[in-house]
Design a binder for these strands. Structure first.
Length: 317
DNA sequence: GGAGTCTCAAACTGAATTAA
DNA sequence: TTAATTCAGTTTGAGACTCC
């Protein structure tokens, strides 16, 4: 089936629709169901056209009208029915998906919003995203991510892999994108839409020590709902037990800055892909606790140097 | 003729409802 | 209360049609 022809004058469409519905009064007296249904079909067509004609800019494609509408109201919960109206096609959900996964627009649905909100990865001032329904949508970033098509192909390959856990798939995708932000929707897709994917991501961060950060857990300039694997390396085992709450407080106290060399999270670039780590002043092995007082922020370069120096002293070299 | 656009159909999932 | 069923929404490959 191909695209339908579209008329663009809303007032003309409105009048046509009213005329059609008025004429339908006599059809209602007709007892033949099929005849009634056939008479009503043009009204559905007209309603579709009227909805799409509300976008007064000359945007012929339904997909473009959808993103136009979402960009007009970013960080706003949009009902699926609204999108249906401006799209003016029956398969509007298919178009939303293409915009999201193939064209790189950060459109989240209620399903992923809830998952991310539950893990504290999606906080938007003045908005309770956890109340979003599965058929509600939100554009969280008005900038298109043009690398998304490539990432989508990578994600698709990983998603289809057999005999591999959801967590392993998520980690594999993140490691394919070290130093590049990925969206929660992409992670959900990689996970095969299994629930609890956001929890699996948190476990990778807090229990397995992968430096996966979000707006809330270390990189304030990241867009909401975005995940970022800073470096392809795990934190040492003893550093993996630091609670997120303590980690966040120490990073904020130290202003996301290495207390040795002054490297800041803002200085991050792929040519010098450092990460910020927490160093125990009194070593974990010596009974040092995971408290704010006993932790200090260092970049991984300074952290490694410090431990190497301490080992040299310990070995009398 | 090819790119772009759109719909169909089937498989799948989770929520809601109903029956036992 | 639990199991079964229904419903609604999502995803995806395939293919039809339009436009340039």
């Amino acid at each position: 089936m191909a695209r339908r022809s579209q008329q663009s004058n809303p007032e003309q469409l409105r009048i046509q629709l009213i005329t059609l519905l008025e004429n339908f009064e006599s059809e209602l007296k007709n007892e033949d169901l099929r005849s009634q249904v056939i008479e009503l079909v043009p009204a559905y067509r007209l309603l579709y056209d009227l909805g799409s004609s509300l976008v007064t800019e000359n945007i012929p494609a339904a997909r473009d009208r959808i993103i136009y509408y979402l960009k007009k109201y970013p960080l706003t919960i949009i009902n699926g029915e609204e999108i249906m109206v401006v799209a003016g096609i029956s398969e509007w959900a298919r178009r939303v998906r293409e915009l999201r996964v193939q064209l790189g627009w950060s459109i989240i649905t209620g399903v992923s919003a809830l998952e991310m909100a539950n893990e504290g990865d999606l906080e938007i001032e003045g908005l309770d995203v956890s109340t979003m329904k599965p058929d509600q949508y939100m554009l969280i970033n008005t900038e298109q991510d043009r690398e998304a098509a490539h990432r989508w192909n990578v994600a698709n390959g990983i998603r289809k892999e057999k005999n591999i856990s959801v967590q392993e798939k998520l980690l594999k995708f993140l490691r394919e994108n070290v130093g590049r932000p990925v969206t929660g929707e992409e992670l959900r897709y990689v996970a095969g839409d299994k629930s609890e994917w956001a929890r699996r991501v948190r476990e990778l961060r807090t229990e397995q020590g992968w430096p996966i950060i979000t707006k809330q857990t270390g990189m304030p300039e990241l867009p909401v709902g975005t995940y970022f694997l800073e470096l392809d390396r795990q934190a040492p085992v003893h550093d993996r037990k630091i609670p997120d709450s303590v980690r966040g407080k120490v990073l904020r106290r130290d202003e996301f800055t290495c207390k040795s060399c002054g490297w800041k999270i803002d200085d991050y670039n792929r040519a010098d892909p450092r990460i910020l780590e927490l160093h125990h002043k009194v070593h974990h092995a010596a009974g040092g606790e995971n408290t704010e007082e006993n932790l200090i922020t260092l970049c991984n370069i300074c952290h490694d140097k410090l431990h190497a120096e301490e080992n040299r002293k310990k070995n009398g070299r």
